[in-house]
Amino acid sequence: MSRIQGVLKDLKDQGRKALIPYITAGDPHPDATVGLMHSLVEAGADIIELGVPFSDPMADGPVIQLACERALKHGTSLRQVIGMVKEFRKEDDKTPVVLMGYLNPMEAMGYEAFADAAADAGVDGILTVDLPPEEADDVAPLFARRKLDAIFLLAPTTIDERIRAIAEHSSGYVYYVSFKGVTGAAKINVDEVAAKVAHIHEMTALPVGVGFGIRDAETAAAVGRVSDGVIVGSVLVDTIARNQADTEELKRALTDLLHPMREALDSLAS
């Protein structure tokens, strides 16, 4: 059982929901990322999605676009991001880390070299926004052989036939994109999400994490009620943008955001 599967199983046994924060590696500075990851764990994170910055993040709204620009200004590369995970693992061998990004930096590094380095550093899962399973025939086996979970997206527009096929290619969890839009837009409709996630649950035994549009305790609880976990991204990245100067202040601000979400999710526990 992978680290991701273990954590999600424990949570399920306890009747609890996963809190999965996302931050962009290298933002506001490469030196800050590992410390921020530990803060996220202290504030209640079960899994961390660590964004790999890309020059052309087509699926992201302005908040994460700017985070990528800040990280790239400091030259944050995929190799460095993997190095950050290795550093993080020195003090934390429990919290799963998922690398989330776009395909081209991996292609440039070479898929085999990337998979080796990621597995060696203690990365647990890979989520590539612009890699649907249809194009993953060469890459997916490299991940599977190294016990890296391949996490794919499901969307409101995904038809049943594809939901089944995508779930079959996935391991760890599937990531349900809560609305038709880019990250950071505020247009989540909880009833629609509930209906779709229930439908996805009928088609796969994998846990379903829901992301896009979760910004506070209220939306976290509403979505947590109908899913196995919530992914929180833009609101955290926006907080990083507004507290770049003072790392300690930033850690406090992130904790202030995540704590109420953690409590709201745990209050759902049966």
Partner: peptide
Amino acid sequence: ARGHFGAYGGRFVSETLMDS
């Protein structure tokens, strides 16, 4: 059938656009 010209082309987009 998947839009490839040899090693090139294909469909590398986020899931929301696949159906369209």
